[in-house]
Design a protein around this nucleic acid. Structure first.
Lengths: 234, 234
DNA sequence: TTTTGTGAAATGATTCACAGCC
DNA sequence: GGCTGTGAATCATTTCACAAAA
């Protein structure tokens, strides 16, 4: 059937007043981090140059798609040779806005929130957890992954003082919309939502949703079809 | 900018030998779980019927899209009235293959694996964790979320005995491909991968990837663009 | 009168295939 | 000779807009 997945077009498409012309297609943006990761691995293994074919294979896509994706960023390859690994890392990083270190606030330090805080996927690549917040006052002060848990009331202060522009919601579904509203009110304009709810946000705010059971259900659909197909194998 | 995201077209498109004709578009499949969740909430709140407009709003999509999506499953609405909530839940569940209970094996019981095991998103909707496996022999026997951790060597036995067809990988990136190979060898044909790697799998195996730092980087891209746009506000 | 279901149009993404450059 | 960059063709998805059903 397929390959890697989970991150594409459910982003409904920008509806900005002034039609800003996004230049890089959304589907391409969603793949850039994958290329970046593959390139880092190549760099670590000592490769200095790579062909579209090789990088495409490592990223689980076709080489034509890869080349078209990269072409939106500019012409950084050399015909007959390939791409310079270091240089390409730089260009993709720049396109993704990874030149700066983004501060993130994580709300909801339960099971999942703790795992996220300790995951390493943050520092890993230019992100920094500015604070952990939790609504339960009994958790205040507890230290998780080296950071003290703070009360939700500190939200505005944290966002202002730490220049936070990305919020991660790892609360139960029932609290997610309210937390989201408060994040937006505090000035956060990008949200990563792990709670199984659809958040309502004003224009100009980006939300991405990660939902375990959604993913399982999509896999279930395909399993179901495969089983049915196998049964019909005349 | 946008709305909910994270689960769509990065699924490269089916490449099955015999061109099975998928009927329901991939993009639609990725949204069905969202509708299902919204419908459950409506049912809990006592609603018995819902219009495409209302359900669309609750799901973060447009009503035309919703109606077209549902039309791939059949004509289950009543003109002038809307959809019967219970009935629609049933039809979507059936389409997703949720009539049966799927058994899942979770490999890698670290930080994230533990959070997933305890998340509740499994039992929640027709999924059952058949076993927790971990490569570290020191963890064997430890009980997490009510289940004992078993050694990786038990994989084949678990898959066979428990009729497992879905595997969840929550190992470090370095171990993911090997675990994946063993899952596939054992007969698992759908994989949910939380490790930050692109898995290579044979045809007929579905992989979906969930990657925290990918999501953050996509948000970073949009933040970056918004900041640039704000700066250019002449 | 309301709201579905759906052809047809518009938009977006992928793939092809090859000219151009190293 | 090998490999990129990209128009043009294809395929997929979304949106429009309205006829038909309740």
């Amino acid at each position: 059937m397929s390959q890697q997945a989970v991150t594409v077009p459910p982003v409904p498409a920008a509806r900005t007043r002034s039609r800003v012309r996004s230049e890089v297609p959304e589907a391409t943006v969603a793949r850039l981090p994958v290329y970046l990761r593959a390139l880092s691995a190549l760099a670590d293994s000592g490769r200095t140059t790579v062909s579209s074919e090789a990088l495409a294979t490592a990223s689980g896509v076709g080489s034509a798609k890869l080349r078209k994706d990269l072409s939106y960023l500019g012409s950084y390859g050399t015909r007959g040779v390939g791409y310079d690994v270091q240089e390409l890392v730089l260009h993709i990083s720049r396109a993704l806005g990874l030149g700066q270190r983004w501060s993130v606030v994580l709300v909801g330090v339960g099971n999942l929130g703790q795992a996220l805080a300790g995951y390493g996927g943050f520092d890993d690549r230019g992100f920094r957890i500015a604070a952990l917040l939790d609504a339960d006052p009994r958790r205040t002060g507890e230290v998780v992954a080296g950071l003290p848990i703070r009360p939700l009331a500190d939200l505005d202060e944290v966002v202002r003082q730490e220049q936070v522009s990305i919020g991660v919601i790892a609360t139960p579904a029932s609290a997610a919309q309210e937390v989201c509203d408060r994040l937006v009110a505090a000035g956060v304009s990008s949200i990563l939502n792990f709670a199984p709810t659809v958040l309502q946000v004003p224009q100009g705010v980006d939300v991405r949703r990660v939902d375990l059971s959604n993913e399982l259900q999509i896999l279930s659909f395909h399993e179901h079809r495969k089983a049915a197909a196998a049964g019909t194998a005349s």
